[in-house]
Structure formats: C-alpha cells, structure tokens
Design a protein around this nucleic acid. Structure first.
Lengths: 327, 327
DNA sequence: GACGTCAATGACAACGTTGTCCAGCTCGGG
DNA sequence: CCCGAGCTGGACAACGTTGTCATTGACGTC
C-alpha cells in the first residue's frame, strides 16, 4: 500500500480511502491511485484489515469425519451455501473420527479466529471448548451431540428411525432381524441401536443380542457379521444397517448371493433406487441438517443468546423393495 | 496477551516468549504465565502473528464446482490429506461452474493471503490471476487447464478415455454409438467429445453428429437426448456418457426399460459394480489427481521454479458388463 | 573490589491496515 | 477583501503479535 501511495504520489491514507470506496477523494486522485494499484497488482491484506478493524475474519470452521463421505460432503455444501448468504467462507477439516485430531483442529481454527464452529464431534469430551464458548464463540454440534457440555445441537431422529425400520420389517413378517451398526462409542450408532431394541420391544419380538454386530466395520468384519447372523440354525431373515457406509459394505458382501435378506439401511444414498432390488432406507434431508445447523450458528452470531437449542430433524422410511419381501 | 501479562505480573514480551516456547524464561515465571493464560482462556491470534512475522497464513484455497459431487469431495479429501502433511489448512469454495463466482472466490482467497491456490476452473479467462502468480502465488489447475495463461496443470487423459470407450464398444459390434456429454465450453467435455470422434475414426465408423448431445444436462434434457438417439429408424445401440452425473441421470432415465443400450460412462462411481448390469466405466484415480496437484503446489511452495508442468494421469477402462453386450 | 559474563526480563518498533483528527485549499457570501 | 464552510489530503495511533536490542542483577574471576 505504501508502494501504491508512492507511485500515485499520495499518502497512504488516501490509498486506503480509495480501496475502501470512502467519500472525499478527488476523482482524478482516485484514478491515479487505481492505476497504481493495477500496475503493482496490489491486493489489500484482509488479515491486517481485520486485525485493525477488530472485525470478524469472515470464516467459519467445519469439523467432520471425512469430507469424502457423501453424507458429509452434502453437509459441507449446505453449510457453504448458508455461509455464503452471510458472507462467510468455510474452513474444513476432517477428524477421521479421532478426538485428538478434532481437538487440535478446533483449537487451530479458534486461533485463526473463525467466527463460529460447526462440529460433527468425534470424541466425547468437549471441555476444551468451554473457554472459547465462554469468550463468545458460537459452536453448533451437528449430527451428534457434544459429549460433556451443553451446546446447540442439530440431530436427526436416530431412535425413531430404527424403531420404524424394525416395525417395517416386522410388519412384513420378519421375526429375526439383525443390526449391523457403527462403533458403539459413536452417538448415532448407539442411538440407532437403542431404537433397534425399542423396535423389537414394540413389535413384541424377542431380542437376541447375537444378531447385533457393532463396528467399526470394514469389508472383513461385515462379511464376518453376515456369516454370524445369517448362517446359523436360526438365521436372521432381515437386516438393518446403521449408516450409508455399512449399507454399501453389506450390499457388496451380499452381491451375487441368490437369497438376500430383507434390508433397510439408515441414511439414503445415491443409486439406492436403481439397485436390484432397490434399497429401502431411513432417509433424512442431509442438506436440511447442514442448513439448520448453519442457520443456528448465524443466528447466534447475529446476537441470539437464548438457551442452547437441541433440534431433532425427522426421518422417514423410504420403502423401495429391499425391506418388503417376506421371510 | 496484555491481560495475561498484567495478571502474571510480567511484561508482554515475556508472555510471548512463553507462548512460543522460547528459551530464557525462568521456570517459575513461565508457570505463572501459563496459569494466567489458562485462567483467562487466552489463545494467541494467529492472524496477528502471521502479520508480524511475515510468515505464511498456513492455508491453501481450493476452488471447485461443487463439494457435494463425490468426484470433487474425493479430490478435496486428497488435497486436505496432503495439506496436512505440509501443515496447511484448506479453504474451500464452490464456484457452481460460474466464472464470476470463481474469480470472486479466488481473489478473496488471495486477499486472505492463502499460500497457494488449487483451481478446477469454471471459466476460460484467468488473466486476473496473472498479478498474483507474478507476485509468487503458486496456482495449480486441476482436472481442467487454465483458459488463457500457462500454469501448472494436472489432468486426466480425457481424450484417450473416450477413444478407448468407443473402441471397446466397437469391438463388441456396435456401429452406432451416442455420446451424452456436458456443456461443450467445459474443457473435459470438449476433450471427451474429441476423443469420441477420434474413436469413431480409429474404428472406421461413420460419425453421425445426430448421436451427440452436449449439455448442460438435467433429467429432462437427458430423457430428450435418449429419445432422440434411441428412438429412430437407425437408433444408437450403445452410449458413452461424459461424466459421473450424466451417467447417473442416464441410468435413472433408463431404469425400467427392458432393452438397454450398451453403456460406458466416464468417471467411476460408487456402486457402479452393484447395478444390474454393472456399469462399465472409464475410471481414473481421483484421489491421485488431487494428491498430484497438491504435491505440485507444495513443491512450488518449497521453491521449485521450473517451467510450468502439465501432467496427464492415465485412465483405464473397467469393463463390468454394461458395455459388453452385443447389438 | 573492579570487571566481565550470563541469565532473565523489558522497552520499542514494526507487520499492513484503518479510524481520528487536523491542516490547507477553494469558493461563495457579506 | 475577509471569513467560514466544504472539500481534499496527510500525520499519527492502534489492532495483537514478535524481533531487536538494552537493562538489570547475580555470580565468578583476577
């Protein structure tokens, strides 16, 4: 900026005025300044500007498990969309389900003075955020609640979803239904398991612990779980899968088998309707989830200081065929 | 930091020393300072630090069309992974294929002093980046080349891919093959179309302009294009689709039809192998694409100033069934 | 006992920008 | 011809941090 001022033969402050479109600069001077700016390729340093003005950095941080997972990438996009409306940019970080990494990223983002934080929490301890929240940083938890602090949270109806999945399968005559879920320390996984049990209870079925296989899962453990639940004297005739990745793993493991169990998966996914048979799912509006969380964050930024909200978005069973065959 | 200093009864500079782990601070003093930091929830302002030190902001910007598209989200993840190795964070922005938006985001990121820029360009004019590049900002173009400047670029073999797709279909006896591609102003779309023509030529087939339908596409235009190419006195018996989204649109439009044309899609996608029939694709390693671009960027940051590279990553046909039926 | 050494700490400027305040100029009215 | 208003431009401080350099005092040495 100094160089620009020198080249244009004006003072630093005048350049600042031109850059900020302030009134009170002679048009001729402004033209000279703009020419100098152009010639030098000057671009004002937003960091310095924000520092001086004490204004926000215009960024929000988004922490999630893995941007490459379609569920999270859709979330990210929805958040970005809302952020754009509020003139903010998005810093993303993938925690890979590692609490330490999450913490590290969160504190790093705080040091960068993000205006707010959206977190799909990996860990169960979020005390490290207390000072920041206390200092006025809005934080919204997304898809899973914070472990040990009270904060804004947007969830989907995990419990209701698996209750409905079991009810659906029971309506079609299934009595032995297996559940393949994610690691039980993950909130959504344990909630969905809880719903699964609840569904059994409501359907008047006898629950069998042996038909539950919690993760973390990969190709091998899924094959193992399928063997364990399906190849026995009293096999499961239906399956509930705990999230989009597990559903896909199961579908791949089942590919080629002639007799497929009935299947309802948690999370909708692209092409579910084009598979053979089409896969029934507990669907929820992922984009709405992201939007709701982002809107909540920006409401906080706009000054809303009501007590922490806990929003639960509805899910609905989308029956496509895979869960409607009888045992 | 001032507050910390006052509370600990030391000078500002001493706090700075403690925060930075510099030598020459009395252990007792350090303890007092740390206690004060803890009590006040102090976190140093990275923006101010970077300003003072003239050091990098530790961020790189990634501009692409839409993070929600699995292709781009996988790219993003790969980039994030590499960035992490080099201690950088990632700012993302979706341009939605809008050159103005891309430009706006790019310049905004420049003003934020990102260390480098990875761009999947939407527009054809990138002169606006010349001053930045000249000022030392490393920029790598990803998946598509820059419009009118010479810069580092990492591409996949678009031409070779569709050449191979046509050859594959021709080998199976198809003589009339249609191409449904994206908007022709998009580099990858026009390159793939070029490869498509080239494939026709190499196979000794007579090219028919009528069997090409370029986008942008949505459900309606795809249905239209299918009607136009398939329901005629000399219908196409096979189809090449120009990217993952178009492939999915086509699959959905074809769902339920008894007689399906042979199909080869550009870009691999999840579940392609589980459809009926499994979809043959021109696959490429998306993560490798992102990694290559990011590594190139960091090589530039590390001082590599050789002339701009242009890397083309190979593609390979993954035959799964949908492209192997005879007419 | 004077002096050099070394460890610990602090004063001050600077990074690039903007807000505040004041100075000089022009112009119109009395 | 003088004066104040209005316009234009500049000097200076400040944002939160760190690099440079100076200061203080304790200790050991000749």
């Amino acid at each position: 900026m100094n160089d620009v001022a020198r080249l244009a033969g004006v003072s630093l402050k005048t350049v600042s005025r031109v850059v900020n479109g302030e009134a009170g600069v002679h048009p001729g001077t402004a033209t000279r300044v703009l020419a100098a700016i152009d010639q030098l390729g000057f671009r004002r340093n937003l960091g310095a500007r924000n520092l001086r003005r004490g204004s926000s950095t215009g960024t929000i941080g988004v922490l999630l498990e893995d941007v490459a997972n379609p569920f999270y990438s859709m979330l990210t996009r929805a958040v970005e969309e809302v952020a754009r409306q509020y003139d903010r940019h998005v810093l993303t970080g993938s925690s890979d389900e590692d609490p330490d990494r999450e913490r590290e990223l969160a504190l790093e983002f705080c040091a960068r003075r993000v205006d707010g934080l959206l977190i799909v929490p990996a860990g169960l301890r979020h005390g490290y955020l207390v000072p920041e929240i206390h200092a006025g940083l809005p934080v919204v938890f997304l898809d899973r609640p914070a472990g040990d602090i009270v904060a804004d949270t947007v969830l989907v109806d995990n419990l209701g979803g698996t209750v409905e999945a079991v009810a659906h399968l029971a309506r079609h005559g299934h009595r032995r239904i297996a559940f393949l879920g994610d690691a039980p320390n993950i909130f959504t996984a344990s909630e969905r398991l809880r719903g699964f049990r609840e569904g059994y209870a409501r359907a008047g079925l006898k629950f069998d612990e042996d038909l539950v296989a919690m993760g973390p899962h990969d190709e091998r453990t899924i094959a193992e779980a399928l063997r364990h639940t399906m190849e026995r004297y009293d096999p499961a005739t239906a399956l509930v899968t705990g999230n989009n990745r597990i559903t896909v793993l199961v579908l791949r493991a089942l590919a080629g088998r002639s007799a497929r169990p009935a299947l309802v998966g948690f999370d909708d996914f692209e092409l579910a309707d084009l598979l053979n048979p089409p896969v029934s799912v507990i669907a929820h509006d992922t984009a709405a989830l992201g939007r709701a969380a982002a809107e909540l964050l920006f409401a906080r930024l706009a000054g809303d200081n009501s007590p922490p909200h806990r929003v639960t978005l509805p899910v609905h069973l989308t029956a496509r065929g895979s869960g409607e065959n009888h045992p």
